[in-house]
Write a protein that binds this DNA or RNA. Structure first.
Lengths: 147, 147
DNA sequence: ACACTATTTATAAAGATTACTATGTAAGAA
DNA sequence: TTCTTACATAGTAATCTTTATAAATAGTGT
């Protein structure tokens, strides 16, 4: 199942004239397998064992390529560095203010707000971005323990 | 009216034990007066005439303080630097992908999605963030001219 | 196997933000 | 008003993330 998505992604890349390299494959695999919304540095560190000579630039380069092909979504949550999410189905994100964890949740896509915004501002609307912020269950229990 | 908001903001700061300095006052005024969603550097440059010796760090320090008190909202749109918005009423933002302009538009606050997200994930929800992206009218006409 | 070109590596550089320290100053107390 | 003290500022260095660059390497079609 994960492999299905990966195959589809690789095919999609080939169609865009993107060559497959071991590093690229590994980064893609990592994004498909892990659902942890990693930063570029997370990926770099996670693959350091398998690719001791891999450059950070390679991670960034590939994330840019994946973004251009539409396989990956970049998210920037203010303070820290960008996080990257393999695009599967339509979902939104909820982010823990305490530990930074990102969790998916499904919700009907807000098409309406796009048309409203377009009418009010005259913009040609392309997309929107929605995130919910709060405290995750484990951080909640920690906080209540510490009191 | 702008002065009202400013007075309220100053009072709010005092209640939090924050001292008023000319620089702080000026940064606050700028945020209240301008509705341009400035970056830290925008503010720094705008006040350079009045405060030739002001440090960039001062701008950042104050923006952090304002954020902590809840007067200002930080927004990070991926590539560029953070933008800061004086919190007045509930509104959302639409951002031009071409020129980066940020425009407000009013839309009923999406309370529902917060409760849905909370139910689905177990998070204690605090707030959410929604932005619409597209092309602003002037960039649209430029693009159609250039063809 | 060859040739062509994308990709990787390694490093430098850029840009944004934060850390640090000496100096200055706001605000309450005497 | 003057004093005092903690907070704020200026100036600079440092950090962190991301991008640019150039030479070496390696996919992919022929």
């Amino acid at each position: 199942m994960g492999s299905e998505m990966l195959d589809h992604a690789v095919q999609s890349l080939r169609e865009h004239g993107v060559r497959m390299t071991p590093q690229r494959q590994a980064i893609l695999e990592y994004l498909v397998t892990e659902h942890s919304h990693p930063t570029a540095d997370d990926i770099y560190k996670a693959l350091a064992a398998r690719f001791p000579n891999m450059s950070v630039a390679t991670v960034y380069n590939n994330l840019r390529v994946f973004k251009e092909v539409g396989l990956v979504q970049e998210m920037n949550y203010g303070d820290a560095s960008s996080r990257f999410d393999f695009v599967t189905s339509k979902h939104y994100h909820i982010i823990c203010d305490t530990c930074g964890k990102v969790v998916d949740f499904n919700y009907p896509v807000l098409d309406e707000i796009e048309s409203v915004a377009s009418q009010l501002t005259g913009f040609k609307v392309d997309r929107h971005r929605l995130e919910v912020y709060g405290t995750c269950p484990s951080c909640q229990s920690e906080q209540s323990q510490t009191h």
